[in-house]
């Protein structure tokens, strides 16, 4: 009996082995930025619909992890939400690896208030002070005399981490600035949208994709966020989302990168609340 079951199992699993090998060969390995892991996954899903023969595996772990994997030759593409650091390039040269950069998407984070709020622009320093609790009242930044209700994403969000590093800490990793304890931590971008819609004293931030005409985006250092200003690099709270490969990618990997940068790939970028490169 047991023998029968076992042989049945073998027979049934045979096609899996055969087609598993013949169909895909080695999967494209993509590793890196946690911010980009969902985007990479979305690309991979659509890509595999068009190229069923090429499996794609996407994992996170952080931009640094992605670069480290590229240097040890254990990934085809490193996803990175920052540029590769000179130290990493030096290390790569030593290992005989030549990182090649592909700019695949942009990430813009809008700072929003209720449309009834008359504050239209803030500097990054003012934003830092608002989110770290030094500025507590709207009148300190040209608004009416009203306590500021500060909204942030939860700590499980890449946006939270980016905002913390680039706005609250003003880009200085060693800065002692933190989100003030009284900052409300919202579980989703949608929750921030709801609170901004109903609260004239609230300020919050989220990906450009969430912005509707019920919220007012604040000009940061005099620049209003838009797909255009983010693309041109004028808007200060934005960053490039990058792929790194070792030298020129092989044909399979190239087809994936081309797909990500194609019109369809860039539509996915927009759908995932990031900013397309064109």
């Amino acid at each position: 009996m047991l023998k029968k079951v076992f042989s049945l199992f073998l027979v049934l699993s045979l096609p899996v082995f055969i087609f598993g090998c013949a169909g895909g060969g080695k999967a494209i390995q993509i590793k890196g930025s946690d911010t980009m892991v969902n985007l990479g996954q979305a690309w991979a899903e659509e890509f595999m619909k068009e190229y069923p023969a090429v499996p794609v595996a996407v994992t996170g772990g952080g931009s640094g992890t992605g670069i480290a994997a590229l240097l040890s030759n254990s990934t085809d593409i490193a996803q990175c939400s920052r540029q590769i650091e000179p130290k990493e390039i030096a290390l790569a040269k030593k290992k005989g690896i030549n990182p090649k950069e592909f700019h695949v998407a942009n990430d813009g984070i809008v700072v929003v208030v209720n449309p009834a709020n008359k504050v239209n622009k803030l500097s990054t320093r003012q934003l830092s002070d608002i989110f770290n609790g030094k500025i507590k009242n709207w009148k300190e930044v040209g608004g009416k005399n009203e306590d500021i209700v500060v909204l942030s994403r939860e700590r499980n969000s890449g946006t939270h981490v980016f905002f913390l590093e680039h706005v609250v800490k003003l880009g200085d990793k060693k800065s002692p600035n933190e989100f003030a304890p009284c900052v409300l931590m919202m579980p989703s971008s949608q929750a921030i949208v709801e609170e901004i819609n109903g609260n004239t004293a609230a300020i919050g931030y989220f990906g450009l994709g969430y912005l509707t005409n019920k919220q007012k985006a604040v000009a940061v250092n005099g620049v209003l966020p838009s797909v255009k200003t983010v693309t041109l690099g004028q808007y200060p709270i934005s960053r490039s989302l990058l792929f790194y490969t070792n030298d020129e990618p092989n044909e399979k990997v190239k087809s994936f990168i081309d797909f990500a940068m194609s019109k369809k790939g860039q539509e996915i970028v927009l759908k995932m609340d990031f900013v397309p490169i064109r």
């Binding site: 939860e154 700590r155 499980n156 304890p181 009284c182 409300l184 931590m185 919202m186």
Partner: peptide, 26 residues
């Protein structure tokens, strides 16, 4: 979900359960 020491019910608070739920993912 603001992690402050609350002094009244009219303040935001962050509970033990919400902290685990919000942060475990990352």
């Amino acid at each position: 979900n603001a992690a402050i020491m609350p002094t009244s019910l009219l303040q935001p608070v962050r509970t033990l359960t919400a902290t685990v739920a919000a942060e475990m993912g990352e």
